[in-house]
Write a protein that binds this DNA or RNA. Structure first.
Length: 185
DNA sequence: ACAAGGATCCTCT
DNA sequence: GAGGATCCTTGTT
């Protein structure tokens, strides 16, 4: 499984390198195909408005989860990066189911196995805010996987409130679908 | 103690 | 393509 040192690096590098890796909780195994970086000093990041009980894990040691509730419904999974004391994380925005299909189907209901969208990832893993701050070395962890053949970058989603230089920064990373040409952006 | 809004998803038209 | 769901976190009174 990926060690804390993997996360203890510049967040943009970690976000890109997470593509192809597999998030594991029990039977459920999800290959990461889309992620966004939230950097120190980034006005799109929760951490930019100061440390609060909710976002405290972002300041914590690397290799831990930061899970929060969005729109009262969706549990978002982030992986904390950079050294202890530096607030940064990678949001897992999209995955492919590579194990535990039945459990994912049961958790997602009619939603099926499509896991493009951070809320769907949290639901497929059965996460809630009690997982926030959990180390990624136990029931929830990440293992290495084959990297994608190509990586697409684009601006991040849903952060219109951020300063333009952060709103427009290409800090969203997506694995190019196998056999596809560059498109969809 | 209160009000506002959010790193979204699903359904319906 | 638009709107509602849904509730916690946060900053303010």
């Amino acid at each position: 499984m990926l060690p804390p040192a993997f996360y203890d690096r510049p967040t943009l590098d970690v976000a890109r390198d997470l593509l192809g890796a597999v998030v594991v909780r029990g039977e459920v195994r999800l290959r990461i195909v889309e992620a966004e970086a939230y950097l120190p000093g980034d006005t799109a990041a929760h951490a930019s408005r100061g440390r609060t009980p909710r976002n405290a894990p972002m300041w914590g040691p690397p290799g831990h989860a930061y899970v929060y509730l969005c729109y009262g419904i969706h549990h978002m999974l982030n992986l904390v990066t950079e050294p202890d004391g530096v607030p940064a994380a990678v949001l897992i925005r999209g995955c492919e189911v590579v194990g535990g299909h039945e459990l994912v189907r049961a958790r997602r209901g009619r939603g099926g196995l499509d896991l493009i969208g951070p809320g769907k990832v949290g639901q497929a893993l059965g996460l809630d805010t009690s997982w926030s701050g959990a180390p990624l070395d136990g029931e929830l962890h990440v293992v290495a996987g084959p990297p994608p053949a190509a990586v697409l970058t684009s601006p991040r989603v849903g952060i219109d409130y951020a300063l333009p230089e952060h709103r427009d920064a290409p800090w969203r990373f997506r694995a190019a679908a196998e056999g596809s040409v560059v498109s969809c952006f």
